[in-house]
Design a protein around this nucleic acid. Structure first.
Length: 469
RNA sequence: UCCCCAGUAGCUCAGUCGGUAGAGCGGGUGACUGUUAAUCACCAUGUCCGUGGUUCGAGUCCGCGCUGGGGAGCCA
């Protein structure tokens, strides 16, 4: 897209835009942050990055500038505004460069700037999470994250799904999906008591409340009105999980379809996942090339393969058979009725299948109360999508739409139906088969970028003992 | 929460058998150069995580604590 004609004085042009210019000769104003400054006697080069793309724009500043001494002292991290002429670069390494007519130092950065023009460890960069978006890796990461978020909405919009905002504050603490963060306005030092226990009736909502661990139950209610819906929002788990795959605050995508069974659910999950793979390959080429080169060699071929080929599907019972005859020794036991451990999931997806695989129809005793009971009386219509390197990335199920069976499971599992009267009501009037799944957005990003720690795919990660920034 | 590993300069790390600390990068100064994380020379920089102990003497050995990382569980 030609830049010529679009540029006005005082209006800045993004580096991404100017680097895609069809030719030299345009006058432009570019504003950004200096990545490196190479100073010579007669010429200074500034690699200017504004976050719009991986590449920096080479700014060439000469001694004719009135403030050349100031420019030559610029440190990494400085904010500058450059007005100049875009010219063909005489040297190798870039097609265009900006011959500066003026360089305004908008915000200088001294030697205390915590990031240098060299490689830093991800651990160190987490301690400067307020500045790490200015690095190559995190620039690429958050551009991809933004694109993927929009791809999620695009996928569901194209399929006619309704986007529903389920509540962040919830009174359900009986979903069993994880520990709840308490939401309260009570005085923690002197809470009102009744019979020695905290009296939540005196709290803001008149009941105990917490941050949502899932929008699924409310999502089901909307599916039973709009047919196909999805949620995409923040989710909170107060588990003391200290792993590279868990955060206390993360984003989850949860579609739900009415008049759909487990097979339709898996079909949607597969189409969705492959769509997202295709999307980053097509729309984030430069950033994906960076991840492929710097973070995870083999990333792009792997995603290409996933985008191109259908997923395998395997019964839980069949998975157990594979695991039992496996030549490798597992740390945890394998037996019908036991849940699959990470090591088992990795074995199935990496060695048995060699690609993404759905495991379906799990024993009912290791799954949630709302999953639909199969006719065999011992399994439920659950599915997990396992992918190489990551393990479980999607978990879903067909929901129990039969009121008597749902209430029976709740009773068996000790779940008080009183707080879920609205949920069981949905099975009382106009109930129908329906199914859905949950995809952790950060885990998706990890899979698609090769980044190995969830703390490095979310802007300001919240994990046990960490809520800074 | 459990198991393992680590914490030394601004960053990445070395530090032998217990004898008061080094390199590279970064920074400063200078030189040089249409440079590409430029190059070359010189210079400066330390609560060796904290705390208690063993010892004539501890970065080094031992106890406790804190912090970080990896693995596991829980899960997305």
């Amino acid at each position: 897209m030609p830049v010529r004609g679009k540029i006005r004085m005082g209006k800045r042009v993004r580096v991404r835009e100017i680097l895609s210019a069809s030719g030299a000769g345009v006058e432009a104003v570019v504003k950004g942050w200096a990545r490196t400054v190479r100073v010579g006697k007669d010429v200074t080069f500034i690699a200017l990055n504004d976050g719009s793309c991986m590449a920096s724009l080479q700014v060439v500043a000469g001694p004719e500038l009135s403030n050349y001494a100031e420019v030559a002292r610029l440190g990494t991290g400085s904010a500058v505004a450059v007005t100049g002429l875009l010219v063909e670069s005489p040297a190798a390494g870039q097609r265009f460069e900006l011959q500066a007519r003026s360089v305004e130092v908008v915000g200088p950065a001294d030697e205390g700037y915590p990031m240098q023009k060299k490689r830093h460890s991800f651990e160190y960069l987490r301690t400067v999470a307020h500045l790490r978006p200015r690095t190559n890796t995190f620039g690429a990461l958050f551009r991809v994250r933004s694109m993927l978020a929009q791809a999620v909405h695009r996928f569901f919009a194209e399929k006619g799904f309704l986007y529903v905002h389920t509540p962040i504050i919830t009174g359900n603490d009986c979903e069993g999906a994880g520990e709840l963060f308490r939401v309260t306005t009570l005085d923690m030092a002197r809470p009102p008591l009744v019979n020695g226990a905290v009296d939540y009736a005196a709290d803001f909502f008149g009941q105990a409340t917490g941050l949502t661990v899932s929008g699924q139950l409310e999502g089901e209610l909307f599916a039973l009105a709009f047919g196909d819906i999805y949620t995409f929002g923040p989710t909170f788990r107060a588990e003391n999980s200290n792993t590279a795959r868990h955060a206390a605050e993360f984003w989850m995508i949860e579609p739900e379809m009415a008049f759909a069974d487990l097979m339709a659910d898996a079909a949607l999950a597969e189409e969705f996942f492959r769509y997202l793979c295709r999307f980053v390959l097509d729309h984030c080429r430069e950033d994906m090339a960076f991840f492929n080169e710097q973070i995870d060699r083999g990333l792009i071929p792997r995603i290409e393969a996933v985008a191109a080929s259908p997923f395998a599907m395997m019964e839980y019972t069949e998975a157990i058979t594979h695991l039992k005859k496996a030549k490798v020794s597992f740390e945890f036991p394998v037996d019908w009725g036991l849940d699959l451990q990470s090591e088992h999931e990795r074995y199935l997806t990496e060695l048995v299948v060699g690609g993404p695989v759905f495991i379906i129809n799990y024993p009912k005793d290791i799954k949630a109360f709302y999953m639909r009971q199969n006719d065999d009386g011992r399994t439920v219509a659950a599915m997990d999508l396992l992918v190489p390197k990551v393990g479980e990335i999607i978990g879903g199920s067909q929901r129990e739409e039969r009121l008597d069976l749902l209430e029976g499971r709740m009773a068996e599992m000790g779940i008080d139906p009183a707080g879920l009267w609205w949920y069981t009501d949905s099975r009382r009037w106009g109930s129908c088969p329906h199914a859905g799944f949950g995809l952790g957005f950060e885990r998706l990003i990890m899979y698609l970028t090769g980044m190995e720690n969830i703390r490095d795919v979310i802007p300001f990660p919240r994990t046990p003992r960490h809520a800074e920034f």
